[in-house]
Design a protein around this nucleic acid. Structure first.
Length: 265
DNA sequence: GCTAAATGTTGAT
DNA sequence: TCAACCTTTAGCT
């Protein structure tokens, strides 16, 4: 259940637990048996996240590419690892740690060329240093698609998911239905800066909190889970700013949430 | 205890 | 446009 910040976090955790030493790989489920055998025993040299894609770089210029999709989950723990249960796609192990992967959309061995192909079709990732918002803007500015749709397009901005989409548009006061070409450069620059700030905070905290303390129903301090968002999954509840009921609709098979009053333009 | 829905993407129809 | 992936959680009983 990841957006980009989760995957970046997992890249760091893999490096911390397994980096610079040989790793044992296995695929108890069997679906990744060949790949696990190919990588088993190699040194994990580096880890990397690009948008929602995780890359583990092993010696011999081989990469493990993982995309969690909707259900995928990594479970990290201290050795000894428990006996494998159920559909355990891959397990990484060393003397001190284990990491179990289940339910991923993609889990495969990549060459450097394979990796390049995936990265080439992604837009800038707000969590990566040097990410260029102008590259995203050039696509937004010439598209008639709703900006709410463009933000979910990984070719426009890599790592943004449904929560960040909804929350960043609320904070910018932009109607998700507004065509990309009607979004101003100023609006986009502000939205991008906010994306960077929110996703960095999410990376640090390990969860997405977008509400400002003053807007949290007159409460202060750390956001309780139900106070962490302005509009995401708050259908019908009063907007935290103007009390208008939060609206929802299905757009491109994903739930979209927005405040019709705060996001009227 | 059970059911439905979910922070996503791919590939078939 | 839709099924698949096949886990986790929230909400109900």
């Amino acid at each position: 259940m990841p957006e980009g910040h989760t995957v970046h976090r997992q890249a760091r955790e893999h490096l911390a637990r397994f980096g610079r030493a040989p790793v044992r790989l296995s695929s108890p489920q069997g679906r990744f048996a060949e790949g696990a055998a190919l990588l088993d025993g190699r040194v994990l040299e580096r880890t990397d996240a690009y948008g929602k894609h995780l890359f583990l770089g092993f010696e011999g210029r081989l990469w493990l590419h993982v995309h969690l999709g909707l259900y995928g989950v990594w479970t990290f723990g201290s050795a000894p690892a428990p006996p494998p249960r159920g559909a355990l796609r891959v397990r990484l192990e060393n003397e001190s740690s284990y990491a179990d992967l289940r339910g991923a959309t993609a889990c495969e061995v990549y060459t450097p060329a394979d990796r390049k192909v995936v990265i080439a079709r992604l837009g800038p990732d707000p969590l990566r240093r040097g990410a260029d918002p102008a590259a995203a803007w050039s696509q937004v500015a010439r598209s008639r698609s709703p900006v709410g749709l463009l933000l979910m397009d990984q070719a426009v901005a890599a790592g943004v998911g449904n929560v960040f989409r909804a929350e960043v548009l609320f904070r910018a006061g932009i109607d998700p239905h507004r065509p990309g070409l009607l979004v101003t450069r100023e609006q986009w620059d502000a939205l991008w800066a906010d994306l960077v700030a929110l996703m960095r905070a999410g990376l640090r905290a390990g969860r997405i909190v977008t509400t400002r303390p003053t807007d949290r129903d007159r409460r202060s301090g750390p956001a309780r889970p139900e106070d962490a968002h302005y509009v995401y999954r708050r259908t019908g509840l009063p907007c935290r700013v103007c009390r208008t009921p939060v609206a929802t609709e299905v757009l491109a098979a994903r739930n979209l949430f927005w405040c019709p009053r705060c996001q009227a333009t």
